[in-house]
């Protein structure tokens, strides 16, 4: 089953083309990561799927409906974490969850959601006394309180300390194991790699690559070999690492010298990402 289908999605702001024909599909129960530099079109894409923005062209189906015209019943099935936190300063954590839970036909129990996002000790604390990371966790809680099938997470861990990020990741994995579909945008490559079944990289309003993180790294199939020769760094990239490495070591042994600082490694998702998005930064 397909949770989200996007075909040839287009959107312009004045003369600026923010999306120039984006297509992808997300299966039910899949965690899909949308990556890209600022201004690549991540938030525009997500906000069209959430029903906040109108598209200029293309077709979009989210849980079987067009978000531009879908109503309350459709909204009850999706949960949204917006890019910036938006809460009532004078309401407590528990009050927020019962306020927003009241908008949904079948809300999850307040205390269950509080445990899920790890705010048990802050249950009756007003939002203005929470830290930024705790407010962000409440944002996530509010997206989950309606027990949605599909969850949009727009940069959910920006500003988190490493421990809080790990905790958020484990919450997201829990959601995945419950069979929820998740669309995640993030700046953090490790986050996308850790959580996503598949990722798409957006650049200048187009998808430049899409696939499982391991596949994407595998697809480039280049291995990097680095060593120092007379103090000079030598970097080789090859698709036949076994042969190249054998030749290198054989030659070094024959000449009776060492390959100083020898390193053999595969490209990481981060390097792939930087390579894919580099063109834009050069402009």
């Amino acid at each position: 089953m397909t949770a989200i289908r996007v075909e040839d999605l287009r959107k312009s702001y004045g003369a600026h083309e923010a999306l120039r024909g984006v297509s992808f599909e997300i299966g039910e129960g899949e965690v899909f990561g949308l990556l890209g530099p600022n201004g690549a079109g991540k938030t525009t894409t997500v906000e069209i799927l959430e029903g906040y923005r109108r598209r200029d062209g293309g077709t979009v189906q989210v849980l079987g409906a067009d978000p531009a015209s879908a109503g309350s019943r459709w909204r009850a099935q999706i949960g949204i974490v917006l890019q910036s936190s938006s809460l009532y300063p004078n309401l407590t954590v528990a009050e927020h969850l019962s306020v927003f839970g009241g908008y949904y036909p079948k809300p999850r129990p307040v205390d269950e959601v509080i445990d899920l996002v790890g705010l048990g000790e802050k249950r009756d604390v007003r939002v203005k006394s929470l830290s930024g990371g705790q407010q962000r966790r409440l944002d996530l809680g509010l997206a989950l309180v309606g027990d949605p099938e599909l969850i949009f997470l727009d940069e959910p861990t920006t500003g988190f300390d490493p421990a809080a990020r790990r905790a958020a990741w484990s919450t997201i994995r829990d959601l995945r194991s419950l069979g929820k579909t998740i669309l995640l945008t993030t700046h953090y490559l490790d986050e996308a790699e850790q959580l996503s079944d598949r990722v798409a990289v957006l650049r200048e309003g187009r998808i430049v690559t899409i696939g499982a993180p391991a596949e994407l790294i595998g697809a480039t199939s280049e291995t990097e070999i680095r060593y120092r020769r007379d103090g000079e760094l030598v970097v080789l990239r090859t698709s036949e690492p076994t042969r190249v490495l054998h030749e290198l070591t054989a030659q070094a042994l024959a000449e009776g010298r060492d390959l100083e600082g020898l390193e053999v490694r595969r490209q990481t998702l981060e390097e792939l990402y930087l390579a894919l998005t580099a063109a834009e930064q050069e402009q």
């Binding site: 029903g51 906040y52 309350s72 909204r75 999706i78 949204i80 938006s86 908008y103 509010l142």
Partner: peptide, 14 residues
């Protein structure tokens, strides 16, 4: 401006 109206708009509350 704090995004609360936007959040409310994203719920089933008409």
């Amino acid at each position: 401006e704090s995004g609360i109206l936007k959040r409310v708009r994203g719920t089933p509350l008409p």
